[in-house]
């Protein structure tokens, strides 16, 4: 992989983050996540397995976002949305529909399938990291509150996570 690609991913993400109204103080983590994700994805793509690459990159971005968000006391969503920008299969959506507009049915199916696979892998990667972060924050909260009412944690209607920095 061309190491300059990490720089391109970072700068493209920084530019797009402005359009999403991300404030400058949130930019470093978002940009770092984008470079990390692109690096992991490229390593897997060169090894010949882009789908696992999307999943691994998204999981890494998710962990970094949740971890950073916890310390910065901001929602992890901010960093996730920006950091997945280089991976996200936007051009795949466009190419799928372009093949369809041109009447190329096999092309539509092939590109469309690859696009859904990529989007699914990214979403699954983010879901895994969010689930683990939620688990970790609940363990931490129940430790801090040891001696509190035991029913507390089981109440699913409680807006869990406001304690954490989800």
């Amino acid at each position: 992989m061309n190491p300059l690609e990490l720089l391109w991913a970072a700068l493209a993400t920084a530019g797009f983050a402005v359009l999403l109204e991300l404030r400058p103080r949130d930019l470093p983590l978002a940009v770092a996540g984008a470079s990390l994700g692109w690096w992991i994805f490229s390593a897997f793509r060169i090894a010949g397995d882009p789908a696992i690459g999307y999943f691994a990159a998204a999981a890494a971005i998710g962990f970094l976002s949740e971890f950073g968000a916890h310390f910065l006391r901001r929602p992890a969503f901010l960093y996730m949305v920006c950091a997945i920008l280089p991976l996200v299969p936007g051009s795949g959506m466009y190419n799928t529909m372009l093949q369809s507009v041109r009447g190329d049915f096999p092309g539509t199916l092939a590109i469309g399938f690859a696009t859904l696979q990529a989007a699914g892998a990214i979403a699954a990667g983010l879901a895994v990291s969010s689930a683990l972060a939620r688990l970790a924050s609940q363990v931490a909260t129940s430790r801090r509150r040891r001696g509190g009412t035991p029913g507390d944690r089981e109440n699913g209607d409680e807006p869990a996570g406001w304690v954490s920095a989800k």
Binding site: L19, I84, L85, V88, P89, G90, Y94, A119, A124, L126
Partner: peptide, 16 residues
């Protein structure tokens, strides 16, 4: 340039 319009984040958030 079309990256500015394409719904990549939208499709990912749909699945999320």
């Amino acid at each position: 340039s079309i990256m500015l319009l394409v719904p990549g984040v939208a499709i990912t958030n749909a699945i999320r």
